[in-house]
Design a protein around this nucleic acid. Sequence first.
DNA 1: CTGTTAGCGCCTTCAC
DNA 2: GTGAAGGCGCTAACAG
Lengths: 310, 310
Amino acid sequence: MRDIAARLGVSAMTVSRAIRGDDGISEDTRQRVLAAVAEAGYRPNDLARRLRSGEPDELAGLIVTGLANPFYAQLAVGVEDVATARGTGLVVASSNGDPGRERELVRSMAARHLAGLVVVPAGNDHRHLTGLPVVLAATPPRGIDADCVLVDDFGGTYEACRTLIGRGHERIGFLGLPPALWTGSERYRGYAAALEDAGLTLDERWVRRHRGDVRAAEKAARELLARPDAPTALITANNRNTIGALRAARDHPVALAGFDDIEVADLLQLPLSVVAYDAAEVGRAAARLLFERSGTRQRVVVPTRIVDHP
Amino acid sequence: MRDIAARLGVSAMTVSRAIRGDDGISEDTRQRVLAAVAEAGYRPNDLARRLRSGEPDELAGLIVTGLANPFYAQLAVGVEDVATARGTGLVVASSNGDPGRERELVRSMAARHLAGLVVVPAGNDHRHLTGLPVVLAATPPRGIDADCVLVDDFGGTYEACRTLIGRGHERIGFLGLPPALWTGSERYRGYAAALEDAGLTLDERWVRRHRGDVRAAEKAARELLARPDAPTALITANNRNTIGALRAARDHPVALAGFDDIEVADLLQLPLSVVAYDAAEVGRAAARLLFERSGTRQRVVVPTRIVDHP
DNA sequence: CTGTTAGCGCCTTCAC
DNA sequence: GTGAAGGCGCTAACAG
């Protein structure tokens, strides 16, 4: 900057003003400065600018359990949309479901003085989510006071289960996440409530609750469906479990209803109902809460709807 | 920092040294400082640190055309893996295929002094990719000198087309991206070469090359397949086109071979061959090139393989 | 309209 | 082992 100023015989301030589009500078001078800037290929240093002006970093963070899951990719798209609209960049990181790693990521983001953080937490204790504004997604806060965006886990699963019941199924199994996880617990609760309200029995032998990938899900589904008293229908409580169950269903016919939509669900020649919702909207809502930070604590619930792919 | 120093009756330098783990400070003093730091909840300011020390930011950037596309999500996972292993964070942004927006993103990332940038470019002229180290993915550099990671677009499409020919198809259409895009051009070339080598005619009426989403792809496929002289097979040159063609194929039976694997391709009751490759590896390779920056210009090609889902 | 002075928070360099 | 001086690149706040 000083170089440019010297070369033009003006002060650094003038260059600064021209670059920032500050007024109080003649149009003529501005043009001359901008020309010199372009010619020199000079780029102002954001670090120094922020250090001096005290502006917060125009960078927010997003921590998800795994970007490979299409749900989180969509969520990231939503967060990015809102951030971009504000001129804010987005640092994305995956915890891989490891609370220790999540803790480490939060620490480094806080040290970087990011403007704020959207987190899909890996664990249940959120007391380490400090040092910067935080909005939780998919899980309500525990141990901290923070805004959050939830999906209607209970209601969605309840409706999915009712769909199966409405089709005459009485032996309905459940393939989901561990009970310690909020989504695992809430979706199981929706399943259990739907059974109870229909006067059906919840048979624990038809339940598998694990934390795993598609292969683990397929294995669990196969075990369930190979039983002599196999259920005639399954609730699969997230997209990994749904895909695993779909693979198992090639050999063991079974009706399926799953949480999370699947892009090509309509192309599968298998009966599948899904609990669909706008994953990007979860991200957008979270980002809005982060940036708008009203005084009162907020909890947004994104609605779900049943989509049948008969 | 001054506060802490004053409170302890030491100089700011001592606090700085203690925090950074610099030696040349007594163990006793360090402990006292660290205790005070913890108690005050003080966090050193990364901006100021870097401004003074001139270190590059421990953040790299990734610009893709759209994170919603599973291919780019996987690529992001790969870049993130390698970055994380080095303790580097990742700023992710989508250009939405708009070169103007890409230019703007590059500018802001360069201004933030990120350590480097992996870019899946939206356009063909890459001269705006300056101001920081850049590695291109999926497209070779043009107008700049940079490393890049490519997929074997030509070879993959060639083999996919040969698969269809091997099954007896002689009227093979093509659904792909515009010729101005590298992948659009290379994949079309693979298609054309396979036809030529087999002595088959390339009929332009069976070709649709557009930039669009799944719906546009389905529409294009329907038009193609509704013709009286419809092709009996289609090459779909990316996952958006493949899914669109799959939808169209419900009403117009046709053999399909597509570039990019689809997660549940094995579950579709439709004959589909795909050109599969490790999208995350594209990201990992790009990140490695970025961080290792050898003196010589590198070009990595990620291999493809045909996977049949009969 | 333009320039001068001062300092953002930290770290390099050199004294002590 | 510790501190004082000075400056990284930029921009408030005040002159003129």
